[in-house]
Amino acid sequence: MYLACLYAENFRIFGAAPQKDGDKDASLSLDFGPATNVLVGENDSGKTAIHRCDPPVPADDRG
């Protein structure tokens, strides 16, 4: 089992999805692959926020 995608809205540094034309999309949408995925970025760019969005995996599902 792996996390295939992650969507965050109004969580930590990620804001709302656009409500009308011309609005900025501040939400986050990521697609992950079944292999290793690495998050790289500058300080305060949202790496820890992404980590905290990740739902915990039950111990018996860790493969």
Rank of each mutant, 00 (worst) to 15 (best):
G33Q: 08
P55W: 00
E9Q: 08
S27H: 00
L39P: 02
L6P: 08
F32I: 02
T36L: 12
C5K: 08
A8H: 02
S29Q: 15
S45V: 07
L28N: 03
E42C: 02
R62K: 11
A16G: 09
K24Y: 11
P56L: 15
V38T: 12
D31L: 12
N10S: 05
V57G: 01
V57H: 06
E9L: 02
E9I: 04
K24F: 15
D25R: 07
V38E: 03
N37F: 04
P58C: 06
D61F: 13
R12V: 05
L30Y: 04
T36W: 04
S27E: 09
N10H: 07
D44A: 15
D23K: 08
A35G: 10
K20D: 06
K47T: 01
C53N: 09
K24H: 13
L39Q: 01
A59S: 08
Q19S: 10
S45A: 07
C5R: 11
P18C: 09
A49Y: 01
D23H: 03
M1H: 10
Y2G: 02
Y2L: 00
L39G: 01
T36K: 00
A4S: 10
D23P: 02
L30N: 06
E9V: 05
A49P: 10
V57D: 03
Q19A: 15
A8I: 03
A17M: 09
C53Y: 05
K47P: 07
A49K: 04
I13Q: 13
D60G: 07
A17P: 04
K20E: 11
F32H: 04
P56Q: 15
E42N: 06
D44Y: 13
T48R: 01
N43H: 08
H51L: 15
A59C: 07
D60L: 14
L30P: 04
S29D: 15
D23F: 05
M1R: 08
E42T: 13
N37R: 05
L28E: 07
K24I: 15
N43P: 09
G63R: 14
M1T: 03
Y2C: 05
A49G: 08
A17I: 06
L30A: 07
R62W: 09
R52V: 02
T36N: 04
G41N: 05
A35L: 07
H51P: 00
D60H: 11
K20S: 14
D60P: 10
F32S: 01
C53E: 04
F11W: 07
L6C: 11
I13D: 14
E42Q: 06
S45Q: 12
A26L: 15
D44L: 14
K47V: 07
L6V: 09
G41I: 03
R62L: 13
G33S: 12
L39H: 01
I50V: 06
I50P: 01
